[in-house]
Design a protein around this nucleic acid. Structure first.
Length: 396
DNA sequence: TCTGGGGTCCTAGGACCC
DNA sequence: TCTGGGGTCCTAGGACCC
């Protein structure tokens, strides 16, 4: 058996949005802070002490915590803080896999000679994020991604927890099943019904029985996790697979108001696609009814697109298709997303290079990038590939 | 308790293909 | 005419995550 040390870090900023607010406004420090005026998007640990939780209505949060300061979210400030933190990650190791705006996996194996032991790297990373960005961050260190993630969850806030190799099951088995990544309200209730409360209980259940409770896929997955088995490597360069926007509605709307909202959503999504140099094929309309039931309608285009008009036509058709259901049940949320995204990687692979002067191609590519940015470069490469031309046209 | 906005992954049936 | 075995893609729903 080949035993390796714990080299995978899960780094997770504490109460991210609320911490950015406390960093930027000293009067908020050490006070309960709630971010979000409709529902709670994030809350400081001082607010959590009163029982405030994410996704709770802001009204209830105020009742629980009358002393709290409620602030409107500032998404651009959070994006900027996220970029700064990911820059610290990138200075630590090239093997960074972002999971969301405020968390990532880092593989620090192989850095022992240049950067020291993983424990030292982890401690230094926490200090660097605090010094350079001014935000508290919790780090879990373990042999697998899953265990590192569980460790950071247990160590929060402002903590560092190492799961020593060989000590994985002793760490894992006393924990409640809710700690497992992928066990939410529904799965936890199903497990509790059968007396499965801890991860150790879960590990003791036959995988076949677990399959009958949760379905074979989820049963197999959780059974492996409960025994500490998770071979997934840290994969840098993960790209998002969809781009969406949604809007919650208050009360009944006229048709033209609904269409105006739809246009706004499609515009937001396609702008973001174009800014990222991405295109997508599958347009999905997301609906929530007055009784909070949900529905989706989707359509796959013949070709990927980032064009507002193309996506809007598809979205309007899907909305018309859902019309009768909307009339019956009312509508409280509408969303549009585009998935099946292609990008630079796929385009580069599709470029025909045989028989062409690679220097001329490089010069053209560099020219587009320098003058028009990466997004325009990707689009021109894509159109070149689609028409089987080696050298992309420069955009107007 | 009364529910925002952004995502990921899995399952399952049906159409269609070889 | 009816049929096996293997596969992909599309659509819809649902659980889950931050």
């Amino acid at each position: 058996v080949f035993v390796t040390g714990a080299t995978i870090i899960h780094a997770d900023l504490d109460a991210f949005y609320a911490s950015v607010e406390q960093r930027d406004d000293p009067s908020l420090r050490r006070r309960p802070v709630i971010v979000g005026t409709g529902v709670v998007l994030s809350s400081s640990y001082e607010a959590r002490a009163c029982g405030v939780r994410t996704a709770m209505s802001a009204a209830r949060a105020r009742r629980l915590c009358p002393a709290a300061v409620v602030v409107a979210p500032r998404m651009s400030a959070y994006s900027e803080a996220s970029r700064a933190v990911f820059a610290v990650f990138a200075d630590t190791t090239p093997l960074v896999e972002g999971l969301s705006i405020d968390e990532a996996f880092l593989d620090v194996g192989g850095l022992r000679r240049t950067a020291g032991a993983p424990e030292e790297i982890a401690a230094r990373l926490r200090r660097a994020v605090l010094d350079r960005v001014g935000l508290p961050i919790t780090v879990g260190l373990a042999r697998t991604k899953f265990l590192a993630k569980v460790a950071s969850g247990v160590a929060k806030p402002d903590g560092l927890l190492v799961v020593p190799p060989g000590g994985e099951l002793a760490f894992l088995h006393p924990l409640p099943v809710e700690r497992l990544w992928g066990v939410g309200r529904v799965t936890a209730a199903r497990l509790h019904d059968r007396g499965i409360v801890t991860v150790g209980d879960l590990a003791g259940v036959e995988v076949e029985l677990l399959g009958t409770i949760l379905g074979p896929g989820a049963g197999n997955h959780l059974h492996r996790l409960a025994r500490g088995l998770d071979p997934r490597p840290v994969e840098p360069g993960h790209r998002r697979a969809s781009v969406g926007a949604q809007h919650a509605l208050a009360g009944r709307l006229r048709r033209d108001e609904l269409d105006a909202i739809l246009v706004g959503l499609v515009d937001r999504v396609t702008r973001r696609l174009r800014a990222a140099g991405r295109t997508g094929r599958t347009v999905t309309l997301r609906l929530r009814h007055a009784d909070f039931s949900r529905a989706t309608r989707s359509h796959s285009l013949a070709r990927p697109t980032d064009a507002t008009a193309t996506v809007l036509v598809a979205a309007r058709r899907l909305l018309a298709q859902a019309g009768p259901e909307i009339d019956r049940r009312g509508l409280t949320l509408v969303g549009v997303s585009v998935a099946g995204l292609g990008g630079a990687d796929a385009v580069q692979l599709a470029l025909p290079l045989d028989g062409h002067d690679p220097r001329a191609l490089d010069a053209a590519v560099d020219g587009v990038r320098a003058r028009f940015g990466t997004g325009a470069l990707v689009r021109s490469l894509r159109s070149a590939a689609a028409e089987d031309r080696a050298v992309p046209h420069l955009p107007d």
